[in-house]
């Protein structure tokens, strides 16, 4: 399989990947190294992991990062309640036998990272928004990602039965360490150009009217050039397109009031909504509707 084949396969699965992204994914799959994706919100970073798991026919294991995420939540924890029950239920049993029982895999709660390396077929492991986790966690992750093994003091080292395809995403709220960057293949996912975005829209909403689709893309592309706090991503564009076709709008210039109301799909802050009054919307619409 070449990277172009991968790009085509993704396209049939309704994911239009840029050349750079396709190559990075291809190399990550072939060389079993993690893939780091950066970019604005809503450009399809998380989505690619989902599509890859579908494409490979494997599980998607997701670890959502947040401030304060620690090894216990991300890797493993002992199931204390179950252990306690076992101890109480077996009074009189030899202590050492009991001990070896309650510290066995049966009593281990697997959290996403451990789960991902102990599966029979290699899953896709999505570590979402790694920039939200603390730097300590990032350092811990390095070890897991380079060795693909986890050590549990009571059990010993658990090595990977299969190496998962790891996808890390970051929104850039914090600079990631160079050490992490260097262990990964990297791709920056930007806003797509008009033709790519049109292809995405057609792939996702195949029943949409072609002239409306072109107007939508023209409008969204123009809107991104406006001075906004939060530029609408691809996800927002798809929401908006779904809303418009759901409302039965065939042409953007048909009903300015309704159109203005649907802009809630695209503009996600109060300031942005203020900065796009009806006059500006109409001017943009005028440009895309001939």
């Amino acid at each position: 399989m070449s990277w172009k084949k991968l790009q085509q396969d993704l396209a049939t699965a309704c994911y239009i990947a840029s050349d750079e992204l396709a190559m990075a994914v291809y190399l990550a799959m072939k060389q079993q190294r993690p893939l780091l994706l950066e970019g604005a919100a809503g450009v399809g970073k998380t989505e690619i992991a989902r599509q890859l798991s579908k494409l490979r026919g494997t599980n998607l294991i997701r670890l959502q990062c947040y401030e304060g995420l620690d090894a216990n939540t991300a890797i493993y924890e002992w199931n204390y309640q179950k252990q306690l029950l076992r101890v109480q239920a077996s009074s009189g049993e030899a202590a050492d036998r009991l001990e070896s029982q309650i510290f066995s895999e049966e009593y281990l709660l697997k959290r996403p990272l451990l789960e991902a390396i102990t599966q029979a077929t290699a899953p896709v492991l999505l570590i979402d928004e790694i920039d939200r986790a603390d730097e300590e966690f990032e350092a811990y992750l390095l070890e897991v990602l380079s060795e693909y093994q986890v050590s549990v003091p009571e059990l010993g080292t658990i090595s990977a039965t299969s190496k998962p395809l790891v996808v890390l995403t970051s929104n850039g709220t914090r600079d990631l360490s160079d050490a992490l960057r260097r262990r990964c293949f990297y791709s920056y996912v930007g806003y797509p150009d008009a033709s790519t975005e049109l292809a995405i829209l057609n792939a996702r909403l195949p029943e949409i009217n072609q002239s409306l689709a072109q107007q939508i893309i023209g409008f969204v592309q123009a809107l991104r050039k406006e001075d906004l706090e939060k530029k609408p991503g691809v996800a927002e564009m798809l929401d908006w397109a779904a809303a418009l076709s759901g409302l039965g709008i065939a042409k953007l210039s048909d009903d300015p009031v309704e159109l203005q109301a649907t802009l809630v799909c695209l503009l996600k802050t109060q300031a942005d909504q203020f900065s796009m009054p009806r006059e500006i919307t109409e001017r943009l619409v005028g440009k895309v509707v001939e």
Partner: peptide
Amino acid sequence: RDVRLACKAVCASSQDGF
């Protein structure tokens, strides 16, 4: 083009670099 993309995936490790 292939070579360029492959090198890019390996060596560019930040938005600036990209």
